[in-house]
Design a protein around this nucleic acid. Structure first.
Length: 113
RNA sequence: AGAGUAAAUUAUACAGUCGCAUGCAGCAAUGCAUGAGGAAAGUCCGAGCUCCAUAGAGCAGGGUGCUGGGUAAUACCCAGUGAGGGUGACCUUAAGGAUAGUGCAACAGAAAGAGACCGCCGCGUAAGCGGUAAGGAUGGAAAGGCGAGGUAAGAGCUCACCAGCAAUUAGGCGACUAAUUGGCUAUGUAAACCCCACCUGGAGCAAGACCAAGAACGGACCGUAGAGUGGCUGCUCGUCACAGUCCAAAUGGUAGGUUGCUGGAGUUUGCCGGUAACGGCAGGCGUAGAUAGAUGACUGUUUAAUACAGAACUCGGCUUAUGUAUUUACUCACCAA
RNA sequence: CGGGGUGUAGCGAAGCUUGGUAUCGCGCUUGGUUCGGGACCAAGAGGCCGAAGGUUCAAAUCCUUUCACUCCGA
C-alpha cells in the first residue's frame, strides 16, 4: 500500500471535486496515470478526541489493506472520515467502503454487481 | 449488620492468525526482541537542555507570603502552630502588617471615627441650656461583654469572671503556648493602593548544530565619532549586531537529508539514618522514539474485557476526567454476651 | 509549542479600571394613529451576567479552578 504524503497531492485530489459520500466516509478519486494506486486517510479535528481519530484511520487502513487487490489500478484515493464515524465499528465502515466503491465502479470485474 | 473517615491496589487480560514501527542478525528470503498513560490531557507552577553577551547594573513591573524541614527547584511534599467545621475518626485553611500612611464602607441611621435623634437627669414659667452612652431605633459592623456596687441620671468610675492589648518570666530552633503584672483599650477591608521579607533577564526542540542542492545567500575595505534600528514587559545605562563604500549576483522562491532524540535529578529490592517528606550505601533491570506520523482486524477462553482517554525534547509537582473489583486502619450508633 | 481575546435579555453591544442601581439599539407584547398595513407616538415584559468555589457586610466587577468559542506568532 502506497500512502500519499505530500500536502500538494492531497490538495490536487480535493480540487478534482470528484467526491462521493456516505454516512461514515467521504471518498475522493483522481486518475494518476502511474499504473498503481495511492491512498490517503484523513480524520479532521472536528472529531475531537485523538483516540477516536487514530482508531478510525487505522480501521480505514486495515480495510484498504485487506481489499486493495479488488480495486482497479491507476488512481489516487482519499478516504475522509465524517463526524458520524466516531460511533461506527469496523464492520459498518467496511460496508460503507464497499458501497462507495461499487457506486464509483472501482471494483474489478464481477464484484461491481 | 448500618452510617462514615483516611490510605492503597487494580487499568483493553490470556492464547492463536494476518498486518504496522524501531532495533539486532543475515548477500537475500526472513528470523528474533521491543512497542502509549495514570492521567500521555489541561499548560497552572518549577527545572534540565539550546540560543540570545558562558546573562550585565539600577529603578519600575511581576511573583510568593504562619513556622521548621525536604528537594535541582517550586506556588509542590512532610512535620508542626493558630483559626474554623464535625458527636467522632478526621477535614478545611492565599494564615505577614490595619499602632507607617492613603483610600473606601452604597442605602439606612443622630453619628461609620469619633457621636446627642428619641429617651433619662439637673436648671428654667417657657423657649432653651447643660450632663449622660443604661434603653430605643438603623445597619454586616455602634464605642469591650455580662453581673454587682455606685450615681441627680449615668459612665471601667470601682470590683469579680470572660475577651483583647502591652510588658516580664518560663518552655519551644521557631510559628506559638502558659503564668504574672499593668493601664483600661478606636470597627472592617491589604484576593483596595501600599509597607515589610524573600525570589525574579528573554525566548523556546519549528530551540539549535551540520551537510547537500542551487546563478546566488557571499568576499574585501572603512569605521566603531555622532545619530538611527534591532537583540520579545517599560525607562536609564552598558554591550553586541545591522546600517557605509567597492566587487559579484539579484528583488525571488527553494524548502531535502543527518543530528538534537532518549540512560535519566530513571526505576526497583535490601540495609542504615530520619516522626515523616527524603537522604546514603550495595545489588538487580535496560523498558516507545515516529516525521502525513507506528498498537489495528478476526476467532476462542473466563461472570466480564468494559470508563476516562493516545507519546512528539525530557523530567518533578499541581489541577481536571475516570469503569470494575478489592484490601487495610480507625470512628459513631444499635444489638448480644 | 507559545501568546492573547471573548462569553451579559431572542440578536448585537456598553457596564468590570475605581465592588453596592444591570444600561442602549434592533426585535417582542399591548394600546393609540390609519379604511387597512408600514412608519410614527405611548406603555410594558424579558437577565440568578458561561460553570463551580473563595475573599468581602455585599461580586457581572476582585482571586482560583474549569468549559466553550475565537484570533495571532513560530
Amino acid at each position: 500500500m502506497i500512502i500519499i504524503k505530500n500536502n500538494k497531492e492531497y490538495k490536487s485530489v480535493y480540487n478534482c471535486k470528484d467526491s462521493i459520500s456516505d454516512y461514515n466516509i467521504v471518498l475522493f478519486v483522481k486518475k494518476n496515470n502511474l499504473g498503481y494506486n495511492r491512498f490517503g486517510f484523513t480524520a479532521a479535528k472536528k472529531i475531537k478526541l485523538a483516540v477516536s481519530r487514530n482508531i478510525i484511520r487505522r480501521r480505514l487502513k486495515e480495510i484498504v489493506r485487506l481489499n486493495e487487490c479488488n480495486l482497479k489500478e491507476g488512481y489516487d484515493f482519499v478516504l475522509m472520515a465524517r463526524v458520524n464515524a466516531t460511533d461506527s465499528d469496523y464492520k459498518s465502515l467496511e460496508k460503507s467502503f464497499f458501497k462507495l466503491m461499487k457506486k464509483r465502479k472501482m471494483l474489478k470485474g464481477d464484484l461491481n454487481k
